[in-house]
Design a protein around this nucleic acid. Structure first.
Length: 582
RNA sequence: GGCCCUGUAGCUCAACUGGAUAGAGUACCUGACUACGGAUCAGGCGGUUGAAGGUUCGAAUCCUUUCAGGGUCACCA
């Protein structure tokens, strides 16, 4: 519970009472558990050392002062817990402020706002996006929106891994076995088309290894790929042309997927550019003896005194590795944006990598190194084990999105509630519902935890889901459409009902909820908040007649309207749409 | 093996970062529509928070030990 000024007021009263400066973390105010009566609860235990008396006496001493506050109506004491009831008048005021504030919960960015870069997605250009990328994209997009809502000037960026041996593999396979086929000639989406050749390469490689039967002999096809990488680095025109063509196929395919996900980046960085920056920087600091080289000319950084080992930065043949590229990218970004924060959204398999990267940046005296954060999320696993694109055991992003949309379509088709909808309208609605179900399913889980995804029965349309929330929104919308012009009203003419009170208390938490998501780098908190709000509203809807012509009608309409706005704007932060009807 | 993360109802997840009798959904069993929209609501069943110690008024949360699962320790990305 965070009503800042009330917290401060209480804190001050207690300070005065005991005539000491009580550390602010001693004043713990929490929401009252639903089993007890009260709106919020002050925990008494910490004050015992100042009151020098027993628990009950202390609680009463404090309660006696607080009960005279206008904001507080009544209290009760249970053990070391002082439960306080807010007065209806005070709640009304808070509610009024919330309703009347423009862009409630959202701070707008100003010229002196912090600039925050969020890096996410960052795909390889040799295969389509899969379920793991979906989680990455959803978290990255949501956290970007959340930082925006906190007034940051946010830039969404990615680095596209468009070069390297893995890219050459799909290129080589296409050259050898493609027979000039193209995505257009085969009517296959470009990223899937290229992905097929990546898998084909791995298959041929495996066949050749089996045929050779000697681990020490490098298969020809792999040597060819390595040769191709060297040609690429030497800018062989034929190879560059092929590379451009195939990468473009992939980009065309990915554009469609990003469009489905509703994601647009502010700036793309390409590894094919930044790896050169990285090499330059590494060599520069090699000269300054920050890095060192070994006999074979490979370049290393020694981080062993930070518990992080030695790390390779340039291969003995002078070519770049992943880390090299990431150093170059980071420098470019700082030059481009002079950011205050940079957040990398990647799977937790890269925890060690980012620890190392940040430490290296520190060693390079980048004062911005401590402004870099790693939002590390858990892997998405299938019942059959880990997803491996090399083996083709992945859930493709497009397939999954389409499956959800279709399921939603069928659900709507057979409900006969939408007889006045044409197929186009049904399709639009099923996209909103299907996409929502998928996105919410992933975002409601604490980002650092891994997700077990069972393709058969993972995603539900009932319970703690987006469709449940969307339905609540649509139903409020329906009520509101029956009474278009009502006058805002912030108080009940009788004592406020418990559900109305509960709703108002949730509504006034919205800004704080967003802040918490930002601080913990975890959108799941918002997802669960919205669910809780929707659930409480449904209870209200069932229990309390809204349009009953009574003098409380406007109060209930005002609550309904505000709930719908919080739902809509909260879901928007998560990248989820809400329909006017469903 | 070293380091990191995770173990909560049959299953999927919460628990406002140390607060009260650990809550939701789902599944299963009841009950509620001549409707402001039933993709809803109300009730029941379901727990030694992996285990054992410790810290304190108070532990799912912090510390130690231990068990289980995952990740990582590449001249892969």
């Amino acid at each position: 519970m965070t009503i800042d000024f009330l917290n401060k007021k209480i804190e001050k009263s207690i300070n005065d009472l005991y005539n000491v400066d009580i550390p602010s973390n001693f004043c713990q105010i929490i929401k009252t558990k639903s089993d007890f009566e009260g709106d919020f609860t002050l925990i008494i235990f910490p004050f015992l050392s100042f009151s020098k008396t027993d628990l009950l006496t202390t609680a009463n001493e404090i309660a006696n002062i607080l009960k005279d506050f206008d904001e507080i109506d009544s209290f009760n004491i249970v053990k070391g817990f002082l439960n306080l009831n807010l007065s209806d008048g005070f709640l009304s005021n808070l509610f009024k402020t919330a309703v009347e504030s423009k862009n409630y919960g959202f701070l707008s960015s100003k010229s002196n706002s912090e600039t925050t870069l969020v890096e996410f997605s960052s795909p390889n250009t040799n295969k389509p996006l899969h379920l793991g990328h979906i989680r990455n994209n959803l978290i990255g997009f949501a956290i970007s929106n959340i930082f925006k809502a906190c007034g940051h000037n946010v830039k969404m960026v990615q680095v596209i891994n468009d070069r390297g041996i893995h890219i050459c593999k799909s290129m080589l396979a296409w050259l050898k076995y493609g027979n000039g086929k193209t995505p257009a000639s085969e009517k296959v989406k470009g990223d899937f088309f290229v992905g097929q050749y990546y898998i084909l390469f791995e298959k041929k490689l495996k066949e050749e290894i089996n045929k050779i039967g000697d681990k020490n002999i490098i298969p020809n096809i792999l040597i060819e790929a390595q040769e191709m990488l060297v040609k690429w680095e030497n800018k062989d025109p034929k190879i560059i042309k092929l590379w451009n063509m195939m990468n473009n196929w992939v980009y065309e395919g990915m554009d469609i997927t990003y469009k489905k996900l509703g994601i647009v980046f502010d700036k793309n960085y390409y590894e094919s550019d930044t790896y050169l920056d990285g090499k330059r920087i590494v060599n520069e600091f090699l000269d300054k003896n920050i890095f060192f080289s070994k006999e074979d000319n490979s370049v290393w950084v020694d981080l062993s005194k930070y518990n992080l080992d030695e790390k390779l930065l340039l291969r003995s043949d002078g070519t770049a590795v992943y880390m090299t590229q990431d150093i170059g990218t980071a420098f470019s970004r700082y030059k481009d944006f002079n950011f205050d924060n940079m957040i990398y959204v990647t799977g937790n398999e890269q925890n060690y990598h980012f620890q190392t990267l940040f430490k290296i940046l520190e060693k390079l005296s980048c004062q911005w190194a401590k402004k870099c954060f790693h939002l590390s999320y858990g892997m998405v696993d299938l019942p059959t084990g880990k997803m491996k694109s090399r083996e083709g055991t992945v859930v493709d992003a497009d397939d999954l999105i389409d499956k959800m949309r279709n399921e939603s379509f069928n659900l709507i088709k057979k409900s006969n509630k939408f007889d006045d909808f044409n197929d186009e309208e049904i399709k639009d609605l099923s996209n909103i519902v299907g996409d929502g179900a998928l996105k919410y399913f992933i975002l409601k889980v604490d980002s650092k935890k891994s997700i077990m995804f069972n393709p058969e029965d993972s995603i539900d349309f009932n319970g703690n889901t987006a469709p449940f929330i969307q339905y609540t929104y649509a139903r409020i919308n329906s009520v509101l459409s029956k009474k278009k012009d009502f006058k805002n009203c912030y108080n009940s003419f009788e004592e406020m009902g418990s559900v109305e009170k509960a709703l108002i208390k949730i509504i006034i938490e919205f800004p704080n909820c967003i802040k918490q998501c930002k601080e913990s780098l975890n959108p799941a908190f918002l997802a669960n908040y919205i669910y809780h709000l929707a659930k409480t509203y449904n209870k209200f809807y069932q229990k309390v007649p809204i349009l009953d012509g009574s003098r409380n009608e406007n109060f209930r309409l005002t609550i309904s309207k505000k709930v719908s706005l919080v739902i809509k704007n909260g879901m928007r932060l998560l990248g989820i749409d809400v329909p006017n009807r469903m």
